Simulated assay, not measured.
Amino acid sequence: MEDIIDFVLELDKLKGVTRKVRPLGLDRYENPAEHSWQIALFALALAPHAVGNPDVARVVSLLLVHDVGEIDTGDTMAFVEEGVDQRKAAERVAVERIFGLLPNGQGTGLRDLWLEFEEEETAEARFAHAIDRAMPVLLNLANDGQSWRENGISHDRVVKRVRDPIQRGAPALWDYIESELGKARERGIFGA
């Protein structure tokens, strides 16, 4: 029992990691724990629009574990492309450590979920990626481009980073976002 309690208390550290986008109406940045909770619920709501009829309970599980490694590595803005391989390697080490806190190999299944998300080969992982990529866009659209403006992120950079994963997992979501990004471009809410 103590190992499980130590694990869940270790997860609490995710609340102290800062992301680059603000929750609606708040003057602070969100954390990955809030992000993971929100996109897990987003998956439940968006499930009828997923490609490949994924197991939504598995999608929720993928989304709940996908950022756990950020306890050790911190968050990197979704629109940053440089250094991806190094960040993913560091996150893998962190995931092994954190899920390794669980006794009797219990962490293996959680680590496998994290790997499934990273590899993006199943319908569940593709849908989870679509949602994960969409949420920062949706928050920026609702916040008048807050993190795009603060970090010099262009319209083209956003589209390049999110179009393919969203189209693969939830094309109707991409259709909506593409339209909204066009309107946002006209309003001039991007940073570059």
Rank of each mutant, 00 (worst) to 15 (best):
R187S: 07
L26A: 15
G191K: 13
W37N: 13
W148F: 08
V8G: 11
E178F: 07
S61R: 03
Q167C: 11
L62I: 05
D55H: 14
G145Q: 04
I5N: 13
G152E: 09
E2N: 11
M135G: 15
D75L: 11
M135R: 12
Q146Y: 15
Y29H: 15
E121L: 06
D85C: 08
H66W: 03
A78E: 04
R111Y: 10
E34D: 02
K15A: 12
G69A: 04
R92C: 06
Y176N: 12
E150P: 10
Q86I: 07
A130D: 05
V65A: 00
N143W: 00
R163W: 06
G145K: 01
E10S: 11
L173N: 06
L63R: 01
G100W: 05
E82P: 07
G169R: 07
F7E: 03
A33L: 13
A128L: 01
H129C: 12
F99N: 00
L41P: 10
D27R: 09
D112R: 00
G83Y: 06
A123G: 13
F7K: 04
V158M: 03
L46H: 08
L64D: 05
V56S: 14
L139G: 14
R111N: 08
L139S: 12
E34M: 01
R92W: 09
A57G: 11
D72V: 07
D67C: 02
V56A: 14
L173E: 09
R111E: 09
L101P: 08
R28D: 05
K20Y: 15
D144Q: 13
P54V: 05
G191M: 07
I39Y: 11
K160R: 08
E30H: 11
A50I: 04
D27L: 07
D72M: 05
L26I: 13
L115W: 15
P23M: 07
M1K: 11
A90N: 08
I189A: 00
A184H: 07
R161P: 09
Q106I: 04
H35C: 14
